[in-house]
Design a protein around this nucleic acid. Structure first.
Lengths: 186, 186
DNA sequence: ATATTTGTAGAGTGATTAGTCAATCATTAT
DNA sequence: ATAATGATTGACTAATCACTCTACAAATAT
């Protein structure tokens, strides 16, 4: 058991349920099964813990997004895989996905340096730029494209999370919503 | 000067800057120019104040969305007016719009009763249902349509807020993004 | 005029919080 | 074996917080 990870896991759970400031570090430590002081041994401040949790979670999402991609496929198929991966991850890791959104619309987000934001978005922007160069995607500003795709995914996640859908129905909605998105940006 | 309004105004400003729990009621009272006790005279608890601020802000947005609509216009033009109104409002009331998103992705959101959520979405859903019946909009589930449109608007707001665009460029992006959205859902 | 309600103030309170600290325990290096 | 470093603990503290309370002022009703 890695205590550092246990602390992150506990923090995620409690932040999602109660919010950042309504979650005392003492409760995080308790939930993680460590002493109060141990938490501050690994993270100098509560803020540092929050930022670390965001970076960690975002990193895990990005890794999953680009997993199981066969480079041989057409750009559309690669794009669809990334899209499907993202929504799958968001549904299989609801607290994590919710946390990312909660964090992004909180004052903590402004504590992330512009460099790190750019660095995190870079692979995605590069991929989109490729699609534009290949004349597959519409020649829109990549930032705009990126934002639209992100919002679309957030919306689909919200829709699928709020209702009760069978696995098949879910897959169908994901496919259909991909087609909507794809038609919009190509 | 209505002190009740001053308190809401102060709370909005501080919540957006610091977050709900990192904003003490004492600071809200100070910013509003009233005494500590006065705040609790109007709002029994801090939670009540937060919920009131959300309802109030959401209500003002909805009112603006449906303003200056000429019923004689085609469904597309009406839809476009609502779309444009919404984005205009979001840009002219950035803190308010940001607050709505901050609130929606916070644990406080679950304190809003399902009835009020339904009631708030109802006019929009009715309007979309109309569009489907008239065979203008694709026959998708209205909830899905609604969520997709909302996300799209949130995305455009984020894009327009993050960069520096001239008024004309802004208008152009709003028009283009409307076309993207319209093509997607019709 | 008098009584009653409502608005306003700000000092006060008990509970809670982030972070510290001195003391052990575990692990590794020499 | 010994030293040194890092991990872990939980009691402790100074500050802060949401909210209360009492007093008084203003407005309204009778």
């Amino acid at each position: 058991m890695d205590k550092k990870e246990e602390i992150l896991k506990a923090a995620l759970k409690l932040f999602v349920e109660f919010g950042f400031h309504a979650t005392p570090t003492s409760k995080i430590a308790k939930e993680a099964g460590v002493a109060n002081g141990t938490l501050f041994h690994y993270y100098k401040t509560k803020e540092e813990l929050i930022l670390a949790l965001y970076s960690d979670t975002k990193k895990r999402l990005t890794e999953y997004m680009y997993s199981n991609i066969s480079k041989a496929d057409s750009l559309e198929l690669v794009f669809k895989s990334i899209y499907t991966n993202t929504i799958e991850w968001s549904l299989e890791n609801k607290p994590e996905f919710y946390f990312i959104q909660q964090f992004s619309t909180s004052p903590f987000y402004s504590l992330i340096s512009p460099e790190e934001i750019r660095k995190q978005a870079e692979p995605h922007l590069d991929f989109l730029q490729e699609g534009i160069k290949a004349a597959v995607l519409k020649p829109l500003p990549v930032d705009l494209l990126y934002t639209l795709i992100n919002s679309h995914i957030a919306g689909i996640n919200q829709y699928l999370s709020s209702g009760e859908f069978s696995t098949n129905k879910q897959k169908q909605i994901i496919n259909e919503s991909f087609q909507l998105l794809w038609d919009m940006i190509t």
